[in-house]
């Protein structure tokens, strides 16, 4: 498997978002914001783009009266991320030999 460099992960914020969703079943908006240290608008744009690619899915719920938006990686998103990782690993291997 050669892997594929995915343009969707070219941006470092999107790459980080996807990494987090690989390690966590779900993650909420505010926790993203804190960990990534980005503004609301910036984060929302990147999340929307990943959503458009069908790489992540959004779940909206309420905790008491506060709305809670959580995100999870889709099967397609996980596969694409895996391909991206394989591509990076192969790139490193090729450069070593």
């Amino acid at each position: 498997m050669k892997g594929k460099y995915d343009k969707a992960f070219e941006n470092v914020i999107r790459l980080r978002i996807m990494s987090i969703l690989m390690a966590n079943e779900e993650f909420d908006f505010n926790s993203f914001k804190e960990l990534l240290d980005v503004t609301d608008g910036n984060l929302a744009t990147h999340l929307k783009q990943l959503e458009k690619n069908d790489f992540i899915e959004v779940k909206k719920s309420f905790v008491g009266r506060k709305p809670l938006t959580t995100y999870a990686a889709t099967e397609e998103g996980k596969k694409a991320f895996q391909f991206h990782l394989t591509f990076l690993e192969n790139l490193i291997k090729e450069n070593k030999s």
């Binding site: 790459l15 980080r16 990494s19 390690a23 960990l35 990782l85 990076l88 790139l91 490193i92």
Partner: peptide, 20 residues
């Protein structure tokens, strides 16, 4: 390639920080 290596290290670090 330095950039790919950095990117992998970055991925690993953020996975770790977000889940532990």
């Amino acid at each position: 390639m330095k950039k790919a290596q950095d990117e992998l290290a970055e991925i690993k670090s953020i996975m770790e920080r977000s889940s532990r």
